[in-house]
């Protein structure tokens, strides 16, 4: 057992070199690696915590947004419902008004049609009645209707003379209006009859196609009508009754 001091010195140097080498290639890389990994793990955990907090914040935000959207949706639904009801009321009112207008228009049109029809029927009916009556009178009694109407009117003037005079006042002219021109004989008969009651009165004969068949006598403010108007009014009533009954039955069939 001996100590070689040169070897001792060499071994001390070798040991110090080994310390440096292991520090350079072993301890520092390993410790730095561990420190870096720990730092990275710490950083990642902090990032994870941060990400978690951010995720929770986002979740809360989204929850708030969802609640806000739900509230808005409810409000919008309510607003839309009210708007729809208002719109429905407006449309219904418009529809009712339109129906009323159409009904009024239809009624007006119907009345116009009825009036036209009645007027046409009036004329046609009057013509037919007069034609038939005249023909029957001519065939059966060898008389004309106008002459008989003149005679009939002349007969009525006398009983009503006082009333006519009072109503005529200071009138100087009597006007006899007929649908068609009277025959000369008829005019003469009418004039002679009027002269008996009103000697100073001049008589003038006129025709009016708008007037019903028959005669109308005007003396000042007095008027005496002897026409088929009243009979035609009766005819109108009959037609109206007939039309009303048909409309009633038509409405019932529509309802059925």
């Amino acid at each position: 057992m001996s100590i070689d001091w040169i070897t001792v010195a060499a071994q001390i140097v070798n040991f110090l070199v080994l310390v440096w080498l292991l520090k350079r290639f072993l301890y520092r890389p390993i410790l730095d690696g561990i420190d870096a990994r720990e730092e990275e793990i710490t950083q990642r955990m902090q990032e994870a915590v941060h990400a978690r907090e951010e995720a929770e914040t986002r979740e809360q935000e989204y929850q708030d947004q969802i609640e806000s959207l739900n509230l808005k949706q409810a409000d919008m639904t309510e607003t839309i419902r009210k708007e729809a009801e208002k719109q429905r009321d407006v449309l219904l009112a418009e529809a009712r008004e339109r129906v009323e207008n159409e009904r009024a228009s239809w009624s007006k049109h119907l009345d116009e049609e009825k009036r036209k029809y009645t007027s046409r029927l009036h004329r046609v009916g009057a013509s037919a009645i007069l034609a038939l009556t005249g023909k029957a009178l001519t065939d059966l009694a060898d008389e004309t209707l106008e002459e008989r109407m003149v005679q009939s009117l002349a007969r009525r003037i006398e009983p009503m003379a006082s009333d006519l005079k009072r109503a005529a006042g200071q009138a100087a002219e009597a006007v006899v209006t007929s649908h068609a021109a009277l025959s000369q004989a008829g005019q003469d008969a009418m004039e002679s009859k009027l002269k008996e009651v009103f000697p100073d009165l001049s008589v003038r004969f006129e025709t009016n196609e708008e007037q019903s068949h028959g005669l109308i006598l005007r003396i000042g403010g007095a008027q005496l009508a002897w026409t088929v108007e009243t009979y035609l009014d009766g005819l109108d009533e009959m037609i109206d009754a007939q039309l009303s009954s048909r409309e009633g039955s038509g409405a019932q069939s529509d309802e059925q």
């Binding site: 070798n14 070199v17 080994l18 292991l22 290639f25 390993i30 690696g33 870096a36 730092e39």
Partner: peptide, 22 residues
Amino acid sequence: TWVVMALLTLAAGLITRNLRPD
């Protein structure tokens, strides 16, 4: 002693040469 030093240094150097945190 040199052999032991070489072994330790080589092993440490080889193992830690590509040492990265990631």
